[in-house]
Design a protein around this nucleic acid. Structure first.
Lengths: 123, 123
DNA sequence: TCACGTTTTGACAATCATTTTCGTTTTCGT
DNA sequence: ACGAAAACGAAAATGATTGTCAAAACGTGA
């Protein structure tokens, strides 16, 4: 739809890692865009609502976003230094989570799982 | 050491779920304590630094704490409604995470994993 | 018990990411 | 081109968390 949202999506796509809203805003402005911070937040909200970008929280509680190749369920292997991420899958974990939930009487089970480390380039 | 820190630890222990600093502060004050919010944050910081309590972030980015039975590595099955949590282990997942890291050249691999659902009582 | 240096505490101010508010500008359909 | 609806952006508001700093509690040696 909007040119602004596309700009945000593209800024995100140009990075292979997770980026914060403030980050993206700074990048866009640095590239000459007159976009406002509010719009960046709105775009990211819309993109994550529609499942086009993944969101996760840093240890400090800041939200970071990533435009992933697939919209299907997956996890990430994230570099602690440069935040670059690789999409990974773990079928066994999915099953394990559901089983654990059932075992303790929990319904509607979901889970969050992220793997962190230092990538080859940053080592 | 301090009575204050013990008060926070106990307030946390009395709950089987994850609680936020603001939450604990409200509880303590409601119980008649004159403790300050700053002190609650300091106590939680110290307790988590020493590994006596586990911390995780809600979707909204708020930090929530829990006094777990074990200090060894484990994960949680958390009720989405009442936040009660059960400590769970997944040996297979631990190995999987490390393997995934190695496969992509990542070193110093760690991971975060939490399972969410609605507990039997809240269903 | 008293004086004094150290640690802990709590009221209040400062931060900082994120959200709201609210005019203004653009976009679209007709 | 025209008006309604959607998108924008600047600035103010929010809310959790942290920093500051003076007062209070503690411990200890005299």
């Amino acid at each position: 739809m909007s040119t602004r949202r596309d700009a945000v999506r593209q800024a995100l796509t140009e990075s292979s890692g997770f980026r914060s809203a403030q980050d993206l805003y700074a990048d866009l402005r640095a590239d000459g865009s007159k976009i406002g911070l509010t719009t960046v937040y709105r775009a990211l909200q819309a993109l994550s609502d529609s499942g086009q970008v993944d969101v996760l929280r840093t240890d400090e509680g800041e939200a970071v976003y990533r435009a992933c190749d697939t919209e299907s369920h997956h996890h990430h292997l994230v570099c602690r230094v440069c935040s670059t991420a690789v999409e990974i899958e773990g079928p066994a974990v999915e099953k394990w989570a559901v089983e654990m939930g059932a075992k303790h009487g929990f319904t509607g089970v979901t889970h969050t799982l992220e793997v962190f480390g230092t990538c080859a380039r940053c080592s």
